[in-house]
Design a protein around this nucleic acid. Structure first.
Lengths: 94, 94
DNA sequence: AGATCAATATTGGATGTCCGATAAATATAT
DNA sequence: ATATATTTATCGGACATCCAATATTGATCT
């Protein structure tokens, strides 16, 4: 399963602003492994290029307004596709 | 967002056995568009090669036992990564 | 049976996604 | 201030993911 990195970066930053290393640790909590530096930093750069996130002097990232809209839209999409995620959760615990 | 196709095929087949066209329509319900034939059939072939699904004479697919185990494991992983999916759902409805 | 439509299969390729290696910048400790 | 560790940045490339186009097979109708 791939493809959720960008989405989760936005989601993570929505909950709390952080720098790259902190985001990486957040990923480690979620899935067990940190993304490689060659993954996370280019991803952040791309998000910044698209103005979905912004960086302050101390390299802390925040969601922009555009980023919020994008995230909301992505959440909507995600929840539609996985509308039955609760069943998945139960199933995995059988 | 990519990478969830195989996972959702397994999940869909867990809920009910179907043929390729029916699986495609199930995807259409979830995300709005059907996967291309060049996507769904090679994916099914690969899953069959890995013995996660099986096909009967009428080309109806079912989860194998191995497929069930794999799916359960994938669900576990998925739910761990997206443990806060309910928040996402609420956020998308704000 | 012949025509028509739906379903399946295959190929080649475009793009996405991510990593490892390496280097530079920055922070921390001694 | 110097050494050490952490964080950030960049490059090239491996592999995954998916599609459009095309061909074939199978079902359905007249």
């Amino acid at each position: 399963m791939k493809g959720y990195l960008t989405f989760l970066i936005l989601w993570t930053l929505k909950k709390s602003e952080m720098n790259g290393a902190e985001i990486s640790r957040e990923f480690e909590k979620r899935r067990g492994t940190k993304p490689s530096p060659g993954t996370i930093y280019p991803a952040l750069k791309e998000l910044r290029k698209n103005e979905l996130i912004a960086m302050d002097k101390s390299k802390t990232y925040v969601l922009t307004e555009k980023g919020e809209l994008e995230l909301k839209s992505a959440c909507k999409f995600f929840c539609k596709i996985f509308y039955d995620v609760n069943e998945m959760s139960h199933y995995s615990q059988e």
